[in-house]
């Protein structure tokens, strides 16, 4: 018996565009995951803290303000510092391809840009969480 996939969907920084975050949250919930939504205007620190406290498998951060290079790496660092090293960090939003590559080099597991289907995102999360749990000897 494995527990359901737990996900934190977070909005970080000053960006108030929450349409994408809410659509993803609903889609993951409809796919059977437990979804926590952070609400707007979180800091990297508060996001990582919430993720560790809520014991999630994955944090999905939605950024449409262009501040992704400033805000995402500190979340990864803070997750690792708080003992959430196994928590997957993914990003969604208007993130150019070069920046996506740079973020992946800094521990962001995947970057979803406009045009990725909800179904593909759900399948990706299911596969990655299963793999991560396999390694953690569930």
């Amino acid at each position: 018996m494995t527990r359901r996939i737990r996900v934190l969907i977070a909005k970080v920084g000053m960006d108030g565009h929450d349409r994408g975050a809410k659509v993803i949250a609903r889609a993951l919930r409809d796919a059977g995951m437990e979804v926590i939504y952070s609400g707007l205007f979180q800091s990297p620190e508060s996001t990582a803290r919430m993720a560790v406290q809520e014991d999630v498998d994955l944090v999905g951060v939605s950024i449409l303000s262009g501040a992704h290079m400033t805000l995402l790496p500190p979340i990864r660092q803070e997750l690792d510092r708080l003992g959430g090293g196994e928590i997957l960090l993914v990003a969604g939003g208007t993130i150019p391809p070069d920046d996506a590559a740079a973020l992946k080099a800094q521990g962001v597991a995947e970057v979803f840009t406009p045009g990725h289907s909800l179904e593909a995102i759900v399948r990706w999360i299911e596969a990655q969480v299963a793999a991560a749990r396999g390694q953690a000897a569930w």
């Binding site: 920084g13 000053m14 800091s43 303000s65 262009g66 501040a67 400033t70 805000l71």
Partner: peptide
Amino acid sequence: PRSLGEVGRE
């Protein structure tokens, strides 16, 4: 501090 990374961007 909250403005970090956002100045002049959008």
